[in-house]
Design a protein around this nucleic acid. Sequence first.
DNA 1: ACGAAATAG
DNA 2: CGTTCTATTTCGT
Length: 604
Amino acid sequence: MLRGGSGTLTSQLKRKDDRVILHFDYDCFYAAVFEAENPALKSLPLAVQQKQIVVTCNYEARRRGLRKLQLITEAKRVCPDAVIVLGEDLTKFRDASKALYNFLRAFAWSDRAERLGFDEVWLDVTDLIDYNVQMLNQNDLTNSFFQLSSTDPTLGFLFDASTYAGSVFPFKTATDSDAELASDEMLSTRLRLGSHLAFHIRLQMEEQYGYTATVGISTTKLVSKLVGNVNKPKNQTTLVPPYDGIDANTSNILAFLDPHDIGRIPGIGFKLAQKIREYVLSRPAQFDAGLVYGGTKEHITVGQCRQLPGLDVALLDKILAGTGTPHGIGAKVLGLLHGIDATEVSQARNVPKQISIEDSYLRLDTIKELLTQLHSLSERLITRMRIDLTESLDPPTPAQGVEQVQGLSDDKWKWLAHPPTLRLTTRPRLPLNADGTRQRSFKRISRSTATPSFIFSQTDTTEMLAERLVKESLLPLFRKLHPEKSGWNLSLLNVAVTGMADEGKGGAGRDIGAMFKTAPVREEDLLGPTSSGDSATDEEEQIVATVQDDAEVDTWEDQDDESTEIDDRCPLCGASIPVFARLAHERFHSADNAQGGTTMYVKE
DNA sequence: ACGAAATAG
DNA sequence: CGTTCTATTTCGT
């Protein structure tokens, strides 16, 4: 690294706002799942119980004083007529989450659709947005049509492209609007379209599935996630430009982020936050000793950190240093403090990378009980594998209402992935000290081995397979972890299969036809190496693109100077089209797009 | 590849 | 019992 020019703060930070990213957060998801199966619950105060606490509750319940993470006894005292349902079996939540994810995924032409937990999803809708920006008629923005498909022009919705749908940050006045457009008109247009797309998706999600969501709209994963929180539930917030000012007065990104506690920034977890606080305070940061989790802390804001004297990559690297801290952490965190986050929304996957089942115990110190627990965990693991890693091979049963666990019927099915690794994790309870006290520890230890192929049997019962798995694989792993004949005492067991790859991808299982159907043509795709768009880990599959005879393809900038008041001009060919013929004309171009071109296979 | 740790919901 | 359980990513070896 050179000193001088290349070491300055501004040279270390470079905004790149060429994406449109939506972040969905389903409103009180667990409660919503119960409401979806029993809509009568919607008007009642509803709380979902796990162990002795309310894990979530609907907004009627919150209105009556119930809170997340409240003790059940407290909840009953505050609101005696609350409906309290047990939510310890996660199956239905997982199923609903998967269904909603697949619904949302269909809107991302890039198939960049990333789930976080059960109730959050990011969509990178850049290509869909850019396609629609090209389609805009600048002379009649208020009567725009959003194309959800590049091949079926009837698929979409009417919208007003001159305004944002839903809420915006910051609250806007008419004069702000001019400043915004002057700052970056293209970015504003794209975000407006993003806001209308988000609005449409929210409506469809409620109509088709009965779920409401809170959405954030911006250009990065970081900001889209955070800005959604500004208006909730059942709402959305777009962070409007300007994005690239140098301080909170000129950049809405900085104005938005500055009041946030650093610990609220995704990517700055407990450890990093404590280190930053310690530096800012010039002493160790304390956290509330009373409660361990959600632990209270000293309030250090992004704005405070951002304005630290001498703050740059090198300083942050020094502040955050330690064994195991990620390389480049200084640059990463400096970016986050400025609302810069180049992280890509990851490609949708057909299977998870890992499945693990665990349980915790007060005391687990006998072989007999160990075998019982390992067996139980193994059965649950194999059941989950048969749900999440298999696919039915019977094509002529399209809409079968209820999914069934593979292995219990005569249906033909196949494995979608064969996890190569089996792992056993334990959490030992530390031995008693001399004074009779015992220090708590949450340290885990693990050993892994090759997954035995018998667990992929399609004929044996989970019971038989679990029996064999314990005897042949898990017990040997356990002996590696705990060689002593006795004396161990565990507070946790975890059994996992890991390393799953999307085996269907790029090969037989992948529906190339579907990609062809929805992928728009973009000239950038055909020219350079699109700066890779990264995804370094995934081997790239074949990309199908269409090449148009470009003879008379114009871009919308070229034409449309003056247009008549009565007719619209086609944004593609400039022809004057009466309103009633508009859809048909758009269909003409789409057909041209899909069929008139040459199919080209690009191998990376 | 393996095992630990950090992060997140 | 006390945050539990689950998943992803990254580091060091």
